[in-house]
Nucleic acid binder design. Sequence first.
DNA 1: TCTGGGGTCCTAGGACCC
DNA 2: TCTGGGGTCCTAGGACCC
Length: 347
Amino acid sequence: MPISRALKLCPEALCVPVPRKACSAKSHEIRSTLERFAPVVEGASIDEWYLDMSGTEGVYHDEHLSVTAHRMRDAVQGETGLTISVGGGTNKLIAKLAVERAKPKLGADGVHIVEPGTEEDFLQTFDLADIPLVGPRFQERLAALGMVRVTDVLQYDISTLRSWLGKREAEWLWDRVHGVSDSVVESGGEAKSISRDETFPQDIDDDRELERELLALMTRAASDLRGDGLAARTITVRIRDADFRTRSARRTLVEPVVTDRVLMRVARELLRKLRAARRVPARLLGVALSSLGQDPEADQLRLFEAGPGTDSETERDRVLAKAIDRVRERFGPRSIIPASLADDGTE
DNA sequence: TCTGGGGTCCTAGGACCC
DNA sequence: TCTGGGGTCCTAGGACCC
């Protein structure tokens, strides 16, 4: 339920913000513990990881995987105070489905291992909606063809499925319902994008007001960008109109940038473009920074020095941005904010 | 009664290059 | 009646996940 509706129904409710920093710190703690058990650990989200256990049989003296899994569970509980569930199988699809069967609230003991060779039988106990990446849209199409459970799909041969769904999707689904998945466990790494967006309590139609919101969003995104030691080449502005139509505009710069001034200058142009194309009240506004790379060092020789009013950053821009970040870190995110934004982009 | 926030990945089409 | 072909980069939109 959206908070705005919850507060309408229950005006005295107290809203407690998500302690994002604390969640992220706990996530790192869990990962560190898991890394002792497997050579490759892939973070799938803030609270899910894949471990590739192949090749570790000798290390664990050929003990059954469920024994190792219970030791992982105990280690995480002991070191972080949090309870995890562990699913095991011969590929990521099986492991992901297995962990749902491992959860103690279903009466299990926190571990569920699917033995090699039993994957197809295991799959037959699921609905298609349980398969990762079978979302609401795909479910609807499949249901229209009379397929809701995995067993519904197994009645048909691949050529029939191809004629209904097209080659690519039919073959993808065919593999999944047979428990086949060849995606590898990879440790991954840096974020691919950083975004901030906000749904307004009331739709906003005023351009100046939208630009103020844009500035607030960009200030947060840019500060996190620099906090991670990254720079961005692509800036995206997203707007959701009152009728829920979502539009976006983006621009990729030749050089990666980090400063509020340049990021905001591009973002404002993109917002103006979106507003010029369709000017109706907006319910959401967002910014995203992508094409990320390591921030080229501030002390690096810069071939071009550009002034305000261009898309290039000056040394002054970068020093200023980082000084502001330090003040915010010490005194809080609201301790120093842009007073206003002039039309030429200076603050 | 409308539908959160932060992400990833995929696709289609266009520009441009050799 | 014909308008090559393949690769890369970019934009816009959409599906999906937690």
